[in-house]
Amino acid sequence: MVDPREFARCFPSVKRLEPDSLAAFLEQLEVREYAEQNVIFAAGDEPEAVYLIASGSVLVLHSGVGGPAVTLGRIRRGEMVGEMGVVDGGPRSASAVVEQAVVAWRLSREGYLSLRDEGHPAIGWILGELGRRLSQRVRSVESRIGRAREQPALASTLPAEAARSRRWYQWLWPWS
């Protein structure tokens, strides 16, 4: 069983869930550990789970078939990786490779769909988190595209600081 206090230290907004709802959600999670350079999932894989990072860091890489490798993002403690495929069911578009040894909480796609289909309160929190992070990433990549127009070599370069988060999720989704 995942410790709710430990989970809430990584994902503070989860405190807005009622304790029973949080407990039911945490029951769906499995703890996974990965060593440096392990591949958590590879481009083309089926989207079997989303990983909520408890410690360490993960690089999201496009592996460069027919072109250069591109680091699309660096995921750290308190962030998620693999959420895109879990939401839309499409195959992985990039690979997740461990940069620094990782402990992650794994929510399977079946677990996500099960929570969603029963209208579980935790799904509102998950969707709020996903929406916020997806919006951040869209803006971050758009920002990189803008910089790469000026300096093409920057297209492959992960910026030091991602685009700042927006606040829309706070008025839109009270669960997040």
Partner: peptide, 25 residues
């Protein structure tokens, strides 16, 4: 809420593809 996530997902996949195209160039 899920629909919005899917729309964002779709947009993220599209901008990632644009970035990869620029990186290839």
């Amino acid at each position: 809420a899920e629909l919005l996530c899917m729309a964002l997902n779709h947009q993220l996949r599209a901008v990632n593809q644009r970035l990869l195209g620029m990186a290839r160039d």
